[in-house]
Write a protein that binds this DNA or RNA. Structure first.
Lengths: 364, 364
DNA sequence: TTGTATGCGTTATCAT
DNA sequence: ATGATAACGCATACAA
């Protein structure tokens, strides 16, 4: 983030001013359940019942209450209700990197499921900052959210690993390996195995891998799948063909440049995500080579740019919306204490074949 | 969203089950301020004071309270506090389309500012669905958020246009033209004028425009800037050079294909956003033409793909983080009722010149 | 400075 | 079926 501009100097600002109204409480008081009760000539208890459990009240009082509600414009206060019921019907979805286009589709799935079950999704962005993580955990302690869906791959700061103080939570995509916290994910090793297997089928023998940062558990998983595929084909894993990246475009470019400088450059590159794959394509082109004619490239995730790339990327698609749906379903079941909940759900990934892969030239 | 899979059939799922614990209240009661007071041998009022306004209490009681707090592990309940204080110190940031890579940078700016002022940002995704908009507005009515930052370009369903029932809100990027609701934005017409002016400087005379959907107010604004620039250069605006898109990659491709089929195709295309510009580049290439040699392309927004494109896109950069910061600052000032607040803040955009633009061949 | 007591707006309990 | 009343957990006006 290069825009650190403090809000002090703003020469380019048009600024017509409006007075800030003093406070919201000052003017008209909010209408409470007591007002409705008074107008309907019943007790507050009856009003509450008429609204939350209409069957528990006679038709007469129900109608009287409804009319009073309509006239006053009364809406129950969720805050007070939450304090009383110890539940808000809203859950927090925590993501570490908002700019990563991988997450939105997962969140969409969560929202769909939440809407069906009458829950609200609140999103939070931690930026991997412990202070922010802790700040969002306070929402849970405060009962301002009932549970949390973690797409951060780690336990938030200030959250106990176990015990009754740990709020209801479900990991999505990445997770904490040793714990009993429920998770929904794909088998990254298996998916990588399949992607590399496809390159082997095409006839490639010299296949490189650009991996993600070792801090992320998915990196070694995908790397393991890559290695296993090579070994299964009787190919020795060449250390110089495994380069480390950080999941970003630039690192893909740099890693690929390194690979192309080898005495024996690879004919295909399996990248641990799409952004690095796009960077690899860029690096290949800037050396005057062509994709897939000279080098094949495979990505991972199938985010939007995979399709927008030139050529469009062959990549591993994760069922992201489905992951979000299932995670939300698990969390809600956890919250409502009904039945059992899977400790681990593993979904299938799918290899999407597009224009960035072809047989090696030697095989033509 | 093609993944409508109900969670009924899941043949590919690994499912070790764990029992759902019954409820959080069942086991150990949560520790309240009364517990601390008892342990510290003071009143609950003193505990509250010691925590929120230490100066209002003697050193002795402060220490006693602190120790009791430490021993009990007490943390005040934000829900109860919010009910009492009628404020939560959290604000809602509403976005219509989560998958649009334009918004994250704005939200980052909001979060930075919020963190400095000790506010929490909750994000919500409406998908332009009135039901979801209304559902998020309930958070405001319920006092579960103090105010809202709108990146949706419209008043959420169920929100009064004016009056005391309208929650504190600030529009960002897009806004409601007629209203007195504060907004922070760029001058889209001016920015478009500058971008097209740059193409004119390069020597282009036949410049096309791919616009956004007319439903979005920024579309006519950018189009107006395009037209004004041409007119200022004494060039007649040709209707066949103005094609409509919907801000998406595919629509950029289609619109550009139409332009290239003209008897007199343009030598440069100004696109209303980067995704359509990327689509235009794709269309140009698929006809065997080159960018920028045969056709120059300019985008708008400077999202990440602008840099990742091949060639990287010349585009209009909006100061997104700054917009977020300022909007958050305005909202907080609105909330805290201090001083005045600008009804409209207009920031400068910046033309970023990259590889997708060059003088027309005729001018070389 | 401290404690007492009340209210924030609901819902749940217990009589009636 | 209904009404009075007590929580939910905290902050503050007022009195001491």
């Amino acid at each position: 983030v290069d825009e650190s501009g403090s809000s002090g100097d703003q020469p380019d600002i048009t600024a017509r001013l409006i007075k800030t109204r003093r406070s919201r409480l000052s003017s008209n008081r909010r209408v409470t359940i007591a007002d409705v009760a008074r107008l309907a000539k019943v007790s507050t208890a009856s009003v509450s019942r008429a609204l939350t459990d209409p069957a528990a009240v006679t038709e007469d009082t129900r109608l009287a209450v409804m009319e009073a509600v309509a006239r006053t414009g009364y809406r129950p206060n969720g805050l007070a209700r939450a304090l009383r019921k110890q539940a808000t019907r809203s859950v927090l979805a925590l993501v570490a990197d908002l700019t990563n286009p991988f997450y939105p589709a997962i969140i969409l799935g969560m929202e769909q499921q939440a809407q069906e079950r009458d829950y609200t999704v609140l999103m939070g962005h931690t930026g991997a900052d412990p202070r922010r993580e802790a700040s969002y955990m306070e929402l849970l302690r405060d009962q301002r959210a009932d549970g949390v869906l973690l797409m951060t791959g780690c336990l938030p700061a200030g959250c106990p690993l176990s015990g009754p103080d740990r709020p209801p939570m479900v990991f999505v995509s990445e997770y904490l390996p040793g714990s009993d916290i429920p998770k929904v994910r794909i088998d990254n090793a298996e998916a990588a195995y399949g992607a590399v297997g496809y390159l082997l089928e095409l006839g490639h023998r010299r296949i490189a891998h650009i991996s993600g940062p070792i801090t992320r558990m998915i990196s070694p998983e995908r790397q393991a799948g890559y290695m296993r595929a090579l070994m299964a084909a009787g190919i020795e894993v060449a250390p110089e063909l495994m380069v480390n990246g950080d999941f970003r475009y630039e690192s893909g470019m740099a890693a690929c440049a390194k690979l192309l400088s080898l005495a024996q450059p690879p004919t295909a590159i399996f990248c641990a995500n799409d952004e690095m794959a796009a960077g690899a394509v860029k690096a290949i082109r800037s050396r005057g080579l062509r994709v897939p004619d000279d080098v094949s490239v495979v990505g991972f995730d199938d985010i939007q740019i995979a399709e927008m790339c030139d050529p469009p990327l062959t990549t591993v698609r994760q069922p992201r919306a489905r992951m979000g749906q299932i995670a939300m379903d698990m969390l809600i079941r956890l919250l409502e204490g009904m039945g059992d909940v899977e400790v681990e759900v593993t979904l299938e990934a799918e290899l999407i074949i597009r224009g960035s892969t072809a047989p090696p030239k030697s095989a033509v």
